[in-house]
Design a binder for these strands. Structure first.
Lengths: 233, 233
DNA sequence: TTGACTGGTGTACGGCGTACACCCTACCGT
DNA sequence: ACGGTAGGGTGTACGCCGTACACCAGTCAA
């Protein structure tokens, strides 16, 4: 891996190759399998060699986030602000979904990276270019929260249902007794397969767009009526 | 610590005391300082003793979450569904804010705990009791997402500004050049102290309620017009 | 009395991030 | 041609983590 074929020198490491290999490794083996040691091994190098290109693991993760951010396409041109923002966010979602670990890592970063700041800046720019006030835009960004990254913090994933149908029935009966409302809405709608918890067996994309539109429609309404933050009004 | 005064036997551990001590330790020293070893020391006991009361660290964290959930008061009676949900969520927010580490831990749990399920069940129950359809309630819960826990995933906290005013000015100038829109909205509104990033120097409570109301108002509107999920409509 | 059960102990293992001293090589100015 | 220097890969070691496993001291039921 990464050695010249016969006896020659290894092609030297650099920050970019480290980051891209880290992303690939996380894609393949999961983020929890990504350690400085495993990454070093992947690169055919001793663990401490990585520290010549990356200050520490935190910065490695920051760098990985920026790699993903780099995969988000450019903003669409010529649409209204609402559609433009909507499309951008859905594009971001698509990028993030390609790397199942990415949303967790994005969330875990304690501060912004250059890449994330750039992305946020461009989304904000779309709002402002659409004529929204800086004030309203500010609140809109907060309201969107992590949704600008194309994901929602799910409340809880359903545990995988037991494969013994008898056990499964018992679990469901138990749940229905203890958490009747949860079961009621989890089984509501045709699209739901079984007694999964909120966030379990539903169409995530639908839920995402539902919430996104709820927020964008609300912002649009406020914008049209010239809303301004009468602090605590 | 937790020993009978003179030479007597130690009052025996139990799951509840372990969990409460863990919460107290996390409150005092931060969640990152909570390890099985430090918790054991706090209890005057050897680390492995904890495993007689808690299966592993994951389950410890689950238990801590349920302790916090237990601090949320009962739902208000007699209000309309919207105010009831709103108040409940704000109460949850107050509980979570008393333990700065709690939101991160709640997020990190891969599955629901009995306590969280119970809480979600009661929130859902409030929607349903208000006459909302199971369908709409389902989507509303998704749309609220982690906001039912009273927190928003901030996009990024602002790094603490340098205390050298000259450096600070330079940083701001640099930021304004590279991220003009971010700076524009960060400095919008009177209440913002300086060039902090989105999520930096604003009134978190205001932002939280703004977004919460945006969502609840949207749900209410859909409810009144008899909305139903014409899947992908 | 005995035997099981409960709960606290001691030791040890394998993993992690990373500090620190080292060394090899390529390239520089002379 | 040659010493100096700096960048990048190495080896060793430390201190933390979660936790498996064997053990042991009481208590209590049979």
């Amino acid at each position: 891996m990464s050695r010249q074929t016969d006896g020659g020198r290894r092609t030297p490491l650099n920050r970019d190759r480290v980051l891209r290999t880290a992303v690939a490794l996380a894609d393949r083996a999961g983020i929890e399998a990504l350690s400085m040691r495993s990454l070093a091994q992947e690169l055919g190098v001793v663990p401490m060699a990585l520290y010549k290109h990356v200050a520490n693991k935190e910065q490695l993760l920051d760098g990985m986030v920026d790699v993903i951010v780099g995969e988000i396409g450019a903003p669409a041109e010529g649409a209204g602000w609402k559609d433009a923002v909507r499309e951008r966010i859905l594009a971001t979602r698509r990028a993030l979904l390609r790397h199942p670990w990415a949303s967790r890592v994005v969330e875990s970063r304690p501060g912004p990276t250059p890449g994330t700041l750039g992305y946020l800046d461009s989304v904000i720019g779309t709002f402002l270019a659409g004529g929204l006030s800086a004030d309203l835009t500010h609140h809109a960004m907060h309201a969107l929260g992590s949704r600008v990254w194309g994901f929602t913090q799910e409340l809880s994933a359903a545990p995988p249902p037991s494969d013994d149908p008898e056990v499964r029935a018992a679990v469901l009966r138990e749940a229905a007794a203890r958490y009747p409302h949860v079961v009621a809405i989890a089984t509501a709608g045709a699209a739901h397969d079984d007694g999964s918890v909120v966030g379990g067996g539903c169409d995530d994309q639908f839920e995402f767009e539902f919430a996104l539109d709820l927020l964008l429609d609300g912002v649009e309404r406020l914008h049209r009526q010239g809303w301004t933050s009468a602090r605590r009004g």
